[in-house]
Write a protein that binds this DNA or RNA. Structure first.
Lengths: 139, 139
DNA sequence: TATGCTAGTATCCGATGGCGACTAGATAGC
DNA sequence: GCTATCTAGTCGCCATCGGATACTAGCATA
């Protein structure tokens, strides 16, 4: 095996106003898509868009989420500026999570997904049944 | 440990027109959301919405996708009725993937996500920098 | 004969996610 | 006083998931 030759395909530097492109593995928008394309993040965002909520309230509202994933997801949503966290010094201490204005713009983009899932579920399930039948018998 | 008593909480059968609810762990829409909230599925859907493409073309267009994930994701998208697969008996055999009408409705719901990622990337990165600085020093 | 093309599958291994136990500080009950 | 409980998490263990690499099959080319 000879050493693979790295061939420079871009003779000129990239244009200054280079548009973000999710299809490039290294593009920052890919990381954003990664974050957005996350079940728990989507559900949290939808719930918080409806109003500020405490940790355990979210936990109870989101069926099947683990504490680890909830706290992890909230932390990265906060880091991304989509959710804000407010500690209230009661006893025991309570923590309130709210959606930020930026988060609200994302919610607007994400909510159609929930709508889609809820409206097209029947079509998807029908297709799955058809597909699985075709696997056993001859298609 | 006494046997846990299962208490029937629904004395009457659930209403017929029970609305799907993504927040219930067992709701079929949750599985759909799970599928949709997938980086690769989103990218494939966006590419196929622009026109039919072969396996290796998709592979080349989607930076960083492995063959395993590409074939796996295409298979489940096909099962869900979102993309269709056509084998063309050339030599070597080629396989064409196209978006279905159902897939096109999902694409309409998913594309805003890409738009959002591409327009708000700067705000997200700024927030991340702010957050990470706040972790080192005192917030 | 060896290599490349096509569209995958098989296998190994590190990363990710889920589960349950555990933390802290104050309060309620025995 | 001692234990249980509430809050919002963290920690460790383990199963599954995702990625990298190697391999398949049939034909064309060097």
């Amino acid at each position: 095996m000879g050493e693979p030759r790295i061939i420079e395909l871009a003779p000129r530097p990239l244009p200054k106003d280079l548009t973000p492109n999710v299809f490039m593995a290294e593009c920052p928008t890919r990381r954003v898509l990664d974050r957005v394309a996350d079940k728990w993040a989507v559900l949290i965002l939808i719930l918080l868009a409806d109003g500020t909520k405490r940790f355990n309230v979210l936990k109870r509202m989101i069926g099947g989420v683990s504490q680890k994933m909830l706290s992890q997801t909230l932390k990265s949503l906060e880091r991304d500026g989509l959710v804000s966290r407010r500690v209230i010094p009661t006893v025991p201490v309570t923590v309130e999570y709210s959606i930020t204005p930026l988060g609200r713009t994302l919610h607007a983009a994400v909510d159609p997904l929930r709508i889609w899932a809820e409206t097209h579920i029947a079509a998807v399930e029908a297709s799955q049944t058809r597909y699985d039948r075709g696997m056993d018998q001859d298609g």
